[in-house]
Simulated assay, not measured.
Amino acid sequence: MLTSSRGEVVKKTDKNKKIGWGVVGSTSWSEHTFSPAIEKARGAELRAVLASTRNKAAAFCQRHGIENGYSKLEEFVADTSIDAVWIGGPTHMHKDHAVAALKAGKHVLCEKPMAITPSECRAMMRAAKLARRKLNVAYNTRHSPKIQQLQKDWRAGRYGNPVHGRAHYYYPYPAKPGGWHSREKQVGSWVFNDIGTHLIDQLRWFLGDAKKVMAAHKSSPSWGYGTPDHAVAMISFKNGSVGTLSASTGMAPGRSRLEFYADNGFVIIDNGMMGTEGSITTGLKGGKEKTVKLPFSPTYKLQVEAFGRHIMCHAPYPLNPEDGLENVKLISQARGW
């Protein structure tokens, strides 16, 4: 017998019932990535959108073949066809959107980072607990099957005790984004909240709980905003290991690299973040290196499906709201506010 997180019994005849999704945001990533992921995912159906204007909502509905488009938050969360909401709007609006959706009885998948400040994250977590609804964060790389298996092997001690993790990702925006991306308090330090948050998540996933940010440097060599587009940081972890990250929203070549070193071996993931094609190289001390291809993985679609199973039958989800909170704590330390 299946039960939903609402405590309702899911009858056998309802096993194929789809979860109705509403998406916050009608352009950019909500348009070209999040909504298509819902449309392709098993057990999911895109049913509504919240846009900044009525015209944008109507245009989105026409493009995606849905009927329910809104420009007012209260009307969007009151839509009874929506079971779950994917929050893809500006970071400084995550908390208000999430709390409203949770209070209205919706489950919430929030884009990374969870919010601007730790206090906002905690407010979202309180709202989820009170509403008895699922809340989680969209770090899609955690849904790559091959990286999941690699992480399990690493955490199981196959390569020994962790010593150092190095996470690098330069993601050059094709054009100057402007808007809220250029405003420090709304974007929460651009490069940290855009790319750095993914790298922090990978370091925490492999190395465990972090202790503190030991050092950080931020600058704006690419776009010249008052919020950084390049950053480097060093983080200490409770198991005695250390992690370093380097991130950019303007510099080439647009590839990621994750390196994890233990006292008896190592793993290197060349590219592969966000589900992109790459390679995995592993090795044990005194042994031969082995490199295998890392194929493209539809991590955004897999994320939707995993959250759906999490809602309907309490299946494990590869992270929890506390991961989102701890990530934002580290970002806050790194940016200095």
Rank of each mutant, 00 (worst) to 15 (best):
V137K: 03
T299C: 14
L245I: 01
S241K: 03
Q148S: 10
S219A: 15
V232H: 09
K329A: 01
R142D: 10
G287T: 13
A78T: 06
H143G: 04
A44M: 09
K18S: 01
T141S: 12
F76A: 07
C110W: 00
N264C: 11
G43T: 07
N161F: 06
H97T: 10
W21E: 10
D270M: 12
W86L: 14
D323R: 04
L135F: 13
A262S: 15
P174H: 08
Y225F: 12
E75T: 07
G286K: 09
G20V: 04
I268M: 14
G308T: 15
R257S: 13
Y171W: 12
F60L: 09
G69I: 02
A123T: 05
Y173I: 05
A215M: 12
G89N: 08
A58C: 01
F34Y: 13
E120C: 06
T276H: 05
I147Y: 04
H168W: 11
Y225T: 02
M124Y: 06
H143P: 07
T249Y: 08
K12G: 09
D83E: 09
P298A: 07
G275N: 07
V49I: 09
A101Y: 04
V242R: 11
L199C: 07
F296W: 12
Y170K: 14
D209N: 12
Q303R: 07
A262H: 09
A51K: 00
D194M: 13
K106D: 06
Y70Q: 12
G243T: 03
V99A: 06
A128N: 03
G324T: 00
E111P: 01
L2Y: 09
K103T: 07
K152D: 14
Y139H: 12
S119P: 00
K106H: 11
L50C: 13
H181N: 13
